[in-house]
Design a protein around this nucleic acid. Structure first.
Length: 292
DNA sequence: AAAACCTTCAACCGCGTAGTA
DNA sequence: ATACTACGCGGTTGAAGGTTT
């Protein structure tokens, strides 16, 4: 018996996000926040959007449009987990896109040498960078740079998003409100409209969606003190803290060959101490973990 | 020109952990 | 104490696009 899936795999869309999906998620999260529950977020987005579209239809388009042309099931057909990832890695307003600076390279390298592939901790020291971003950057470029492979300088002209992605789309009333994932049987009937009206009426005051507090920027991990990192390092699945910390800082001297280009690595080759020439925050992190 | 190969990176997967009933 | 649920993390995958042959 495996673990239960986090969502109904058959009814969620996978693959690259379309610009419309991005816009839906972004606007919802910016307005309503996540509500502390990513799993139910796609349904909430659908609920809000359904009400909006129905009102839009009734108030503005009723004289001209057939009710049956109003989409009944709208929203994000995405797994909550996927929404979380998309928001955290791409849509968050404080994300820094684009190439890494030399300074960032150095910091990533030194932190990797110091604490290994704890990408979330490393990301916490690079404002605007995500762990996924740093992990990819490490795996594709920095690792090769560090361990001697020639890096090919290549333009990064990959287009963001997925313009090529196909999906069933519904252009609402030809007014530019485009909805993805509307199938043949997903349109409103007079019965279903009544049902929704009843439902909205019953829950108008205890709605749980419209009354959620607006998004509060998560306490930025970027600003958290290193001590927290140290604590999480020491407590994260490390049964024997001192032993494992020792292992954590056992540098493989073979792997450190070829690091000469990197300021401060000379010291690393000769001892288990982080050279003070390495970025100060790394020294601090290293020392605090050891002290812990 | 085109096939083969390589690189990049967004997204997925599954596991460990924390919180809660 | 136990079971369940959701979150967060790190490893991996695969599509897209670039480069080489």
């Amino acid at each position: 018996m495996g673990r239960a899936p986090c969502c109904d795999k058959a009814n969620v869309k996978k693959g690259p996000w379309s610009p419309d999906e991005d816009a839906l998620l972004r606007s919802y999260v910016e307005k309503h926040g996540t509500g502390g529950n990513w799993i139910t977020l796609p349904q909430k987005i659908g609920t809000v959007l359904s009400r909006y579209l129905l009102r839009f239809h009734i108030e503005l388009l009723a004289p001209t449009l057939d009710f049956c042309s109003v989409p009944r099931k709208v929203g994000l057909k995405r797994c909550g987990k996927s929404c979380r990832l998309r928001w955290l890695n791409y849509l968050r307003p404080d994300i820094k896109h684009g190439g890494f600076s030399e300074e960032e390279d150095n910091l990533i390298c030194s932190l990797y040498i110091s604490i290994g592939s704890r990408w979330s901790i490393i990301a916490a020291h690079l404002p605007g960078r995500t762990d996924n971003d740093i992990k990819n950057y490490w795996n594709t470029k920095l690792k090769k740079k560090l361990f001697g492979k020639q890096r090919t300088d290549r333009r990064q002209c990959r287009s963001i998003g997925s313009a090529k992605q196909e999906s069933d789309r519904f252009d609402y009333g030809g007014l530019g409100i485009v909805i993805d994932g509307v199938g043949q049987n997903d349109f409103w009937t007079s019965t279903s409209i009544r049902e929704l009206h009843g439902e909205v009426g019953e829950r108008s005051s205890s709605d749980g969606v419209s009354h959620q507090s607006p998004l509060v920027a998560p306490s930025s991990p970027l600003l958290q003190p290193l001590r927290e990192d140290s604590a999480s390092l020491a407590s994260s699945s490390l049964p024997g803290v001192s032993t494992d910390l020792d292992e954590l800082f056992q540098f493989d001297l073979v792997k450190l060959e070829g690091l000469d280009f990197f300021n401060g690595f000379e010291g690393l080759k000769n001892s288990n101490e982080v050279s003070p020439l390495v970025c100060p925050s790394v020294v601090q992190a290293h020392n605090e973990v050891l002290q812990w």
